[in-house]
Design a protein around this nucleic acid. Structure first.
Length: 404
RNA sequence: GAGGGUGUAGCUCAGCUGGUAGAGCAGUGGACUGUGGAUCCACGGGUCGCGGGUUCGAGUCCCGUCACCCUCCCCA
């Protein structure tokens, strides 16, 4: 077999059974989003690199080593988007949406790109469907957002644990950060190399380091929750109350910090019980719009990893009946007409292109899991009829063309 | 970016200490010229991921490379 070309590493074709899972996931989510009255937005796959660098954070792994960055013919630095939020925020400001209404609820769907080492459920081009809410500071928006994430998982039959935490705001986080850095210096000899390096630069990330010694060292670390200012504490408490009233189960995870710098207050992840990885994740980012030059606008959102979910869902059953029209002999003109009539009646019809005897054609009907075979021979054509065979029962009857 | 594993027919895989490539399933044709899921027979298909090296001879050994999988890192 000639393998002259293959897709670049981490880039994949999606087809067949995988694509049916893909569509099941995105259409289920879109259906739910419709009920929440989210409005779709399509933003470019390419943005100026600074859009991501400034929003996601210069010190993050995504920006430092995972972005596809290139220069165009005018020497401008562009990047393939590694996530969806930055582009939507840019679009929100550029299109002055804040001037239209007091708040907005948007969703996007599309490919994202990260230069990472591929693994199961992780590709260099992967797909996310995500939502963003702009202009709402109150915790009932956080609660409804988490409810939506919860509903998505339930609708797809996926068991996952919703983990939540609060990262505070610019009033209370600096003091916490200071306390944490101080603590980390005290236990520095127990930290892994990476964490020793990042304890000053990005101390929060040490909290969710997976290395055993780090987890041990961090057990007694000061908790953000103890440092929350009154407003943040109330926000977090109300969120938990609302979730309880809604019957959304969750687990508090004091070490949940997320890998993007723009988060404030609420952060959350839905961790698959089967895979142990996040399949939905997001949170609040109350300063990002302002940092991008827009008016001060509280905001929040999450992203769903489609490929991750594909590992967890079943292929949906076919939701229509298939009519397989079998021309037998020189009856093609008549068979074309029959297929046409059936399609006009809303039936799903495949007109057989198979050569060979009736037997072979019925074998193909079987292979395609056709519900009905519509057999058309010279006899049927002469009589202006078709023989309709139920492929399940084997029953067959002759119908006049106007009866089908 | 670090470590490990695997690449042989469309798919799943076998191929021992180097000796000129196989099975099952799938495909095509036939047994069976207008009636399927079964059975039997036949046939087609492979530069053994790619490149180089060792050797009289490499699917097999060595080096490189690419891809996939796993564990880290990170993330959806």
């Amino acid at each position: 077999m000639a393998r002259d070309f293959q897709a670049p590493r981490g880039f994949h074709d999606i087809l067949g059974s995988d694509l049916r899972k893909f569509r099941r996931i995105t259409s289920t989510i879109r259906e739910l989003l419709k009920r929440y009255n989210y409005e779709e937005i399509i933003t470019p796959v390419v943005e100026f690199a600074e859009v991501f660098e400034r929003s996601i954070g210069e010190a993050t792994d995504i920006v430092q080593k995972e972005m596809f960055v290139f220069t165009d013919k005018k020497g401008r630095r562009l990047a393939l988007r590694p996530e969806g939020t930055a582009g939507v925020v840019r679009a929100y400001i550029q299109n002055r949406l804040y001037a239209l209404r007091p708040y907005h609820k948007l969703f996007y769907e599309g490919p994202m790109f990260r230069y990472e080492r591929p693994q199961a459920g992780r590709y260099r081009q992967f797909h996310q469907i995500g939502v963003e809410v702009f202009g709402v500071a109150e915790p009932h928006a956080d609660a409804e957002l988490l409810r939506l994430a919860d509903e998505i998982l339930k609708a797809l039959g996926i068991s996952a644990t919703l983990e939540i935490n609060s990262l505070g705001c610019k009033v209370c986080r600096p003091a916490y950060r200071e306390a944490l850095v101080e603590y980390l210096h005290g236990v520095a000899n127990h930290l892994c190399d990476v964490c020793v390096d990042r304890k000053d630069r990005n101390p929060l990330r040490v909290l969710d380091c997976k290395v055993g010694t780090c987890q041990e060292a961090v057990k007694e670390a000061p908790k953000m929750l103890d440092f929350l200012c009154d407003e943040c504490r109330e926000h977090y408490a109300k969120l938990k109350d609302y979730l309880k009233e809604l019957g959304v189960s969750f687990r508090e995870n004091y070490n949940l910090v997320r890998g993007l710098d723009y988060y404030t207050r609420t952060v959350f992840e839905a961790v698959s019980d089967e895979l142990g990885v996040a399949v939905i994740a997001g949170g609040r980012y109350d300063y990002l719009v302002e940092e991008f030059g827009g008016p001060p606008t509280p905001a929040l959102g999450f992203a769903v990893g489609v490929e991750r979910l594909m590992l967890l869902v079943d292929e949906p059953p076919r939701d229509y009946e298939l009519y397989f029209v079998i021309p037998f002999g020189d009856v093609h003109s008549y068979a074309l007409k029959v297929a046409d009539i059936l399609r006009k009646k809303g039936k799903v019809v495949e007109l057989s292109y198979r050569k060979g005897g009736l037997r072979k054609q019925l074998e193909l009907a079987n292979k395609l899991s056709a519900d009905y075979a519509v057999i058309i021979g010279e006899d049927e054509m002469r009589e202006g009829a078709v023989s309709l065979k139920d492929m399940r029962t084997g029953e067959q009857r002759k119908l006049r063309i106007e009866e089908i």
